[in-house]
């Protein structure tokens, strides 16, 4: 079932980076994720390219198929339309920017096939 949208996507939420710095969710940049992952002992950033976006099981859900990491591993996630992903060099993006803005006041671009999203994996996982 689709993952409900957690509270930290609300505009103004305070996010702690790996070096301790605090930023608002709407002010996060690609470098913040990259730098935080660099100094993390367990987590590593992957590039996950959106390959397909299909309707989900419920009217407000979508199934997004990603090609994850260098190996282009195929991973599907079902999320609500308003769920934001962070696109490299672009920032927050969702399948329904209007809904994300309305529900969470978080400005979003439209998530499209071909977009490359920030995702996490474990260091040393192969």
């Amino acid at each position: 079932s689709p993952v409900a949208l957690p509270p930290f996507f609300m505009r103004g939420s305070i996010i702690q980076l790996a070096d301790g710095e605090l930023k608002r969710v709407e002010d996060l940049k690609t470098e913040d994720f990259i730098h935080s992952a660099e100094i993390s002992s367990e987590l590593k950033i992957d590039s996950s390219t959106v390959e397909r976006i299909d309707d989900g099981q419920t009217p407000n859900a979508v199934v997004i198929q990603f090609a994850v990491g260098e190996l282009k591993a195929q991973v599907c996630v079902e999320v609500l339309l308003e769920y934001p992903f962070f696109v490299f060099g672009q920032g927050w993006s969702s399948c329904s920017p209007d809904r994300t803005t309305r529900l969470f006041e978080l400005s979003c671009a439209k998530l499209c096939v071909g977009d490359v999203c920030v995702s996490l994996t474990l260091r040393g996982l192969r």
């Binding site: 305070i14 702690q16 605090l22 969710v25 993390s40 990491g69 190996l71 962070f86 994996t121």
Partner: peptide
């Protein structure tokens, strides 16, 4: 004010078994 860790905001996409 709650403070959330950076890694909560991006998905953990563990590759599944490839076909």
């Amino acid at each position: 004010v709650p403070v959330f860790p950076w890694h909560s905001l991006v998905p953990f996409l563990a590759p599944t078994q490839s076909d």
